[in-house]
Design a protein around this nucleic acid. Sequence first.
RNA 1: CGGGGUGUAGCGUAGUCCGGUCAGCGCGCCUGCUUUGGGAGCAGGAGGCCGCAGGUUCAAAUCCUGCCACCCCGACCA
Length: 492
Amino acid sequence: MAKDFLTREENYSRWYNDIVLKAGLAETSAVRGCMVIKPYGYAIWEKMQSALDKMFKDTGHSNAYFPIFIPKSFLNKEADHVEGFAKGCAVVTHYRLKNDPSGKGIIVDEDARLEEELIIRPTSETIIWDTYRKWVQSYRDLPILVNQWANVVRWEMRTRLFLRTTEFLWQEGHTAHASREEAVEETIRMLDVYTEFAEKHMAIPVIKGLKSENERFAGAVDTYCIEALMQDGKALQAGTSHFLGQNFAKAFDVKFSNQEGSMEYVWATSWGVSTRLIGALIMAHSDDNGLVLPPKLAPIQVVIVPIYKSNEEYQQVCEKAYEIKNMLDAKNISVKVDDRDTHKPGWKFNEYEFKGVPVRIAIGMRDLQNKTVEVARRDTLEKTSYQQADIANKIEHLLEAIQDNLFRKALAFREDNTTKVDKWEDFKSVLDSRGGFILAHWDGTAETEEKIKEETKATIRCIPFENKNSEKGKCIYSGKPSNQRVIFARAY
RNA sequence: CGGGGUGUAGCGUAGUCCGGUCAGCGCGCCUGCUUUGGGAGCAGGAGGCCGCAGGUUCAAAUCCUGCCACCCCGACCA
């Protein structure tokens, strides 16, 4: 399936692209910048969705759905918000087509121009806050804790499968609160939910922090994020949670009467993660043999491959294979028995390895005699012979061990690729030689960040929560005083 | 949107400079037999208006014009 697969060393971006294509996750479509997410890739997204959705529900949120179209005038109402998004919006101007009078197919009917153009949502704050105005009158109507699973469109210049496409799938939470404290608390709570999801489900360690002014969401008071490090030394923002203050409440006039009977603007948050996480998953764990998936997000956790010669052997081996499948099914482990006679075992081994299936079990006549199975784990590529007795428990533990090992490996990688730097020369050389996260002092100004970005393409990924205000120092660039190190990196 | 590159069978490609048995090769696919514990072997077979649309020419994958898509590098971003 992928004999001509390049290594990460040879060409990292081709390696990434080939995994997406050859593992059957997604492909480019007839529409520029838009991708087709194929069944295997979409199955990963569904796993992400169901884990996250449960976490959202467990923290009190409900799902709802708002329109894909936003009246152009809405986008105008919050000044920073328009400025941030206006450049990349798709606009619907007409509502009808007609036959070309010259007989050359179909054209836009100029008589069917919309009075007010519609924007295809790049994000839904405006339409949602316009709606919330009608939902909120009293403090008794608060909080509103709503999430929506949706597609959004941002007209990107350069696209890459999963990492940046014109249309992408995501989830956007939008909450309304009676007090600043409560909204801030919600913002952090959801950041913690994302952190838990990234670390426990995706097995990717992340750094929590605050975005600098330059990187802040258009319309937010504060943007918090989780940042992950990819194997090529570049950072990837894996989730964001915004404290919106009263910006949108003021723009859309969403007020409530508080317990004292006076009118007050509502406090807001929004937070989201997207199909980009699939890109993160690939770049965090996969190797030169293809995709590596953490068991918790793998559509197929265990594949069983029968080994046989005669038809009679095929029957016997498959019978045992399905017997084991049933035992694993009972533990909610997702198992596929690949009993196709059209492919050889070796072919299947490579196929599932490339697709990142965490555990492979091979069963042949030898195993039937010895009451064993051959178990191969994808993360280490180790093969071991297991006794069949108690196999379900053993596999269950193995899956946990793989999940755990992937996280520890990713954490060790991040630690190895995080460098404290105090000299500007070192900053540049570390960035060029190995990349990774760079911990350096910064004077806190947007101008300095901008200059650093211009000279090195590195940006401040976040001002980490950890070690907040723990260390005084001098800005790496300007030499001005700083009371905390921030995280710099080149980013996706 | 600017600079660079590419587009030939499902995939990867030769041929493009120097128009004319150039439409080839590998993988995959189909049929049959032998195989099956790490991508099987042999034999036979199917599949392409050479990205699309125009133009030049007796003749275009090859030359010209326009368009489209993809890749790499910038500006924008989850």
